[in-house]
Design a protein around this nucleic acid. Structure first.
Lengths: 182, 182
DNA sequence: GTCTATAAGCGGATAGAC
DNA sequence: GTCTATCCGCTTATAGAC
């Protein structure tokens, strides 16, 4: 059920997907969904929570595998590539940003996950920016987050090609600039 | 009517806004909307076309005002700041990207405007990248487009603060790097 | 717990008068 | 061309049997 929801909701669109489509995909019946989750919104929230946990796990692996400060900062781009590659059904772009756009008056339960995603990004990128940029760590973290968000949005836009490479390049430049001010 | 549509659709959300809300905002009646536009989708498409034309005009002004190659490339960020400042009701982020997310199976009329926006960005940024980056112009244009998209998405994410400054900084770095390879 | 069938409400669109 | 009133379909959610 959750797997089906993740696949269809974030590929076809959250609001564009009627509950019936989820039921059909999961091969269960309406009553089952509503006894387990209570509402479509609650199902969305749960699917987002699962997704955030999965994504964090993939990112963790790439951080552990990185062997220097620069690689740890840029691991977020490698993790994104892995996450999308390993997932059978890659979402159209970013499920969290899609939810923010499609559900502007989302239930607290939903917006909390979006905030958690942004917070995870901001916190980790700042952490990994410190050894590279010292006092300019916040500046660097902001730049990398922007490059990362730009990469995600490039999937939605369909342009440019190979957005992960472009975003990674941008982040790399930003990191080098903070080491060599001017 | 179009002004009301632009304000409400792209601030409250396209799908989240019922036709009734647009009618109330514009102080007209349902029949009026449907005789003039034919459908909600057609109204959305027209609002997007108007918005693209306005945006292009603002960008034009900032290009003309720029007095060197670097300023012309970065004018897109100044134009974005102007556009949002001068608009009474700034949209939540980018109307075109919002439409792409909210209407995944959009009518051709709508997706054409999105394609036109991306095309305008890609074409102009490549044009202004040439004098700065020469053979690496495409590379630079991709990077600036990514930084620009990241800036827009930062409005949706609510983070980082001052996204236009961050995006502009990234684009500037990318341009400098193309002038000084390595 | 899961199914079938159905209720309740909303949103987009239209009919017909003026 | 605009309004009032209304229709129709879709979507979410529930009731009641098994």
């Amino acid at each position: 059920m959750l797997k089906a929801a993740d696949q269809v909701l974030f590929d076809q669109g959250i609001r564009a997907t009627p509950v019936d489509a989820l039921l059909q995909q999961a091969e269960v019946s309406a009553a089952t969904l509503y006894t387990h989750f209570g509402s479509k919104d609650a199902l969305i929230a749960e699917a987002l929570r699962v997704r955030l946990a999965d994504w964090q796990g993939v990112w963790d692996q790439h951080i552990v595998a990185a062997d220097n400060d620069m690689a740890r900062l840029l691991a977020v781009f490698d993790a994104l590539a892995s996450y999308r590659r390993d997932k059978g059904h890659p979402s159209r772009w970013c499920a969290f940003l899609a939810a923010a756009t499609e559900l502007p008056a989302a239930a607290e339960e939903i917006s909390a996950v979006l905030a958690a995603d942004t917070d995870l990004l901001a916190t980790r990128l700042l952490h990994f920016s410190r050894p590279l940029a010292g006092p300019r760590a916040q500046e660097l973290a902001d730049e990398v987050l922007l490059a990362y968000s730009g990469t995600l949005t490039a999937f939605l836009r369909g342009y440019p090609n190979a957005p992960i490479d472009v975003g990674r390049r941008l982040a790399h430049l930003a990191a080098k600039a903070c080491r060599q001010p001017g």
